[in-house]
């Protein structure tokens, strides 16, 4: 059985400000500043609370999800966001328990 990827925030130093639900991140390791819209900001806020799977994060973004194509789209968008945050060194995905 394939374990779902569990996502967590990297331990690299991160400065953040949140305004009107949007988030700006300063990543000390790269010296880069990143902007996250409200959805991206919610993902990071959830990861501050602890590790989460894509399903956990989807539940935060949309507590009453609809089935079908819209759900698939949301999932793929979230996975793309997590992949990008992973590339940037902001989050880390693991499959270990």
């Amino acid at each position: 059985m394939v374990r779902p990827v569990r996502w967590r925030l990297s331990s690299a130093p991160l400065l953040e400000v949140v305004w009107d639900g949007e988030r700006l991140l300063y990543q000390g390791a790269s010296g880069e500043t990143h902007y996250l819209n409200a959805a991206g900001s919610q993902v990071v806020a959830r990861l501050h609370e602890g590790e989460a799977t894509v399903d956990d994060l989807l539940a935060v973004l949309d507590p009453a999800p609809s089935a079908g194509a819209a759900e698939v789209l949301r999932r793929s968008q979230l996975e793309a966001l997590l992949a990008r945050l992973d590339e940037l060194g902001i989050v880390i995905g693991t499959t270990t328990a």
Binding site: V17, W19, D20, E22, R23, L24, T33, Y35
Partner: peptide, 11 residues
């Protein structure tokens, strides 16, 4: 201007 946009423009 919202603050996030202002931040990015100022930076």
């Amino acid at each position: 201007l919202n603050r996030s946009d202002a931040f990015l423009m100022v930076a």
